[in-house]
Write a protein that binds this DNA or RNA. Structure first.
Lengths: 350, 350
DNA sequence: GTTGGCACTCAAAGGGATAGAGTGCTAATC
DNA sequence: GATTAGCACTCTATCCCTTTGAGTGCCAAC
């Protein structure tokens, strides 16, 4: 069955109305509030069909209709139009994005914060996926006997470091030799092509005794691997408590419980990203609605992310988790605008 | 008016009973559940007096009594006894404390996590107060023209770094000279004695041209100052939603809203710490109950922190925010035990 | 100082009754 | 065939009333 024009309008109106009032929408109020040149009985017929198609549903027999996940999906895919933010709204966001920070991480956190304040929902960002970036510098600094700091500068303008344990007897000079050898042979290599073997090979040119050397190389390798681990920044969880959608304590608890496990959320975003990439969806937004989200407790949420780019090959995600019942077009423009600003600011770092 | 023995027992019993049942406590149930060798009428008289003294109160005329903030305070100060954790509970905590981490920060986060899981409440820790620790190393690494990384190793075994902007024209060699000069003259100085003037004096011995030098020195100074900024780690906010004490969405919202501003909470903990230090209270725990806490939305909470020590002169706080209606003695032993483990583990870093 | 007794209070729980917004269906109309 | 008016029906939310029961304060007696 195809949606004729009026049915599309009806679905559109139902979503709009429900989003703004949080009340199930009846045929009568639809007539009152929107300009349909037909009677409520006609709309009732249309609504019965929309329900039959699974696009809307009734909380109970004698209530109005609310959009189903499928209904929101149809709305998002085919019905809504996305407007640009007003200059005023743009300004509001620009004011919040702090262009004075010196580290990419701070910039991302700042953008996440801005997004949460702007949308009033939970915002999140993934750290850039650094697998494709390459090593520009690697230094090992002796901190004290037995302890050293591995500092890495990556092509994407990101600096990472990690404290590692090293054999007690190594001299400052030996460490420098090893560090120099690794740097010399790995500079320019993408992180995902660096393996324990490549690091060990790089170290061979030094005259440091084998067992000592091996431990340092292993630690350096571990530090490099840690550098491309993904972080997630989540913000504004408490805002969900102000939404009528989560006025039931049980739902709110489940939701915040899930969000508190940031590793799990990060894993999920990663999965989404990979799935999208495989499908070659070159849509710039990933949108998951309600039950489409496989995280527990997010049945009443929608999950919208966009991709920011630090360099051509290094990117990450930024987005929002809000109630299904949200102003999709508005939220999408907000994310889009923040993303654009973020991309702009990121040019400073690369 | 002084509390005679029986009144003490009555207050003790009321607190215990209310904590475990979350129901206002009546004279009759008190008789039933505890071995008072008097009648309920006698207890009613005692309770009337306790109420007169402000130690307990009635939610409404015909209800039982609940402890007031003052009542909890009396309980905490004079009535309760603190038992050691059972070997089983100790083991549970020991299992969770990860002794393989290589950085103090990770250890603290880990302890915070453990504390939240153990108590079921919100846990928090402050990063160590590094003002009294001194500089052991300071290196400036050139990242690329115009950008450098300041790496500092502090006496407390903590490593800090910050990306800073530097003049584009500075050579690697010049940077090393400056870095060496600063390190040479500031090593061994406590952070709180390092000022912009001391840093500038340190830099004078180099032959780097004045204006360039000045910017680098300023950035180095800023990096050092940033190193002793306090961080706070908060965890388990969502757990509050499972407590009957916060079953009203409004309270839960206010609470989580306040906790989401971690800077504010950090400021408050700091204030508490300073106040305690001024008073010379050498009590190892700081306990604030209900309205004693000046943060908004925490009227129904108690705030308990202990002090951990990284070195003799470098310490921080770790503790819990839970409902007023908590098992104080248990929670205090839990915090105490985690703190002790933390102190033990910290020895590895110094 | 302690106790039994008693009148009183108040929140919480239960049980209709009512209102109102909404529905589906049918038969008439365009 | 699509649209509409009309109508019987449904179900929740709300209000109000009563009942219940745990608890209180106070008084007179022990």
């Amino acid at each position: 069955m195809q949606l004729d024009n009026r049915k599309k309008e009806v679905l559109h109106a139902i979503v709009d109305d429900y989003v703004s009032t949080n009340e199930p929408v009846g045929s009568k109020s639809l007539i009152e509030r929107y300009n349909f040149n037909v009677s409520s009985a006609t709309l009732r017929n249309d609504m019965a069909e929309l329900e039959h198609m699974g696009l809307i549903e009734k909380p109970h027999t004698s209530a109005g209709r609310i959009p189903s996940d499928k209904g929101y999906r149809e709305y998002v895919n085919s019905l809504m139009t996305i407007d640009e933010l007003s200059p005023r709204e743009q300004l509001e966001i620009e004011k919040r994005i702090d262009s004075s920070v010196d580290e990419v991480t701070d910039l991302i956190k700042n953008a996440t914060h801005t997004l949460s304040e702007t949308t009033g929902f939970v915002s999140l960002a993934m750290s850039p996926r650094l697998k494709k970036s390459f090593l520009k510098q690697l230094k090992i600094l002796m901190i004290e006997p037995g302890k050293a700091l591995v500092v890495m500068v990556l092509s994407a303008g990101v600096v990472k470091d990690k404290v590692v344990r090293i054999p007690n007897f190594l001299s400052d000079e030996q460490i420098m030799k090893i560090s120099g050898a690794i740097e010399k042979s790995l500079t320019g290599k993408p992180l995902d092509e660096i393996t324990l073997v490549t690091v060990e090979t790089a170290g061979k040119s030094t005259d440091v005794p084998e067992p000592l050397l091996k431990q340092v190389l292993y630690e350096a390798y571990a530090a490099i691997k840690q550098a491309d681990e993904l972080n997630i920044y989540l913000e504004g969880e408490h805002r969900m408590l102000s939404l009528p959608d989560f006025s039931s304590l049980g739902r709110a608890r489940d939701l915040l419980g899930t969000l508190s496990d940031s590793g799990m959320v990060a894993g999920y975003v990663n999965e989404m990203e990979n799935a999208a990439r495989e499908q070659g969806t070159d849509d710039s937004f990933m949108i998951r609605i309600g039950q489409e989200i496989t995280l527990e407790g997010l049945d009443d949420c929608s999950f919208i992310t966009a991709t920011y780019n630090l360099t051509d090959s290094v990117s990450g995600n930024i987005g929002v988790i809000g109630p299904k019942r949200m102003l999709y077009s508005k939220v999408i423009s907000q994310i889009d605008f923040v993303k654009k600003k973020l991309n702009q600011e990121m040019k400073r770092f690369t």
